[in-house]
Write a protein that binds this DNA or RNA. Structure first.
Lengths: 141, 141
DNA sequence: GCAATCTTGACCGTTTCAGTAAAGTAAGCG
DNA sequence: CGCTTACTTTACTGAAACGGTCAAGATTGC
């Protein structure tokens, strides 16, 4: 029950980008170096974040990555969900349909559902702006 | 990032015991049947919960398990921690000492630490009494 | 002593994790 | 052009964790 490295690295990378001057592009290797993340592994992570619209990228020489989302509107939940898929603190929510013992159904499910809801709210309530002092709010480079 | 089956089953089992009349002993197989948990797997879980003082047991014929802790004082955190070890939502807290990139250290760590703290508070705030309507508050059978 | 129960530890197939490697695509630069 | 710099994508892999199963022991009641 912990966040994967992928999620952890993803948050670090996004936080790094949020701390850069707004027009600047950051190289993948630069992020990897600064955050202590294996380069090739980071490449996968950045690719996903880009596909989900959180990051933008420019290819070729003088290329790099930049933060596309607005830090104040980008939550931990958004980043983790982009990288690890839907956030489900327990399996029972949608995965256990079929042989359901009476008891586990009634009470336990409700209990876990509440945990799920509150956990998600927590992740959703922590935004990137909470950590990085907001470095300007431009758009594209 | 989800609770393991072990944790899930453990919570279900404890909740089941909390719903039983106070003096009664419940058989391992009975719990397994009611909650839909593999018997042998449940045995390991109950054993751990007993060692941690959450459950009590009586051996031999007419034996069984009973809830030792007071539901209102027994939180999700207690049960999960008993089964899965210390609750650490991220690795970075105590596991990554050595090669630390500057950036990840400064901001990211603080951010994750806050998540860790709040997540733990959430788990700690949800007690078993919140789900089971309190079935009497005796002590031992 | 025999049957019912809990107790303990070893074992094991599958999945996920965390990363590596490599081939491919796009863009700037001279 | 063609070379270099970057991002892009996919495949692969060793190790660990997950989710159990199984067998053998230790206790107690009858």
């Amino acid at each position: 029950m912990r966040i994967s490295r992928k999620g952890e690295y993803g948050v670090a990378a996004v936080l790094y980008l949020a701390s850069q001057p707004s027009g600047k592009l950051s190289l993948s290797d630069e992020i990897a170096g600064s955050c202590g993340i294996p380069k090739n592994f980071l490449a996968q992570i950045l690719a996903r974040l880009r596909r989900k619209g959180i990051l933008g990228s420019v290819r070729g020489k003088r290329g790099g990555y930049y933060l596309k989302a607005e830090p104040a509107r980008l939550s931990l939940a958004d980043v983790l969900e982009a990288l690890e898929g839907p956030i489900t603190l327990i399996r029972s929510i949608k995965e256990d349909e079929g042989k359901e013992a009476d008891f586990l159904n009634r009470r336990v499910r409700g209990f876990f559902l509440r945990l799920q809801t509150r956990g998600y709210e927590l992740l959703k309530s922590m935004t990137l702006a909470d950590v990085a002092p907001a470095q300007g709010t431009d758009d594209r480079p």
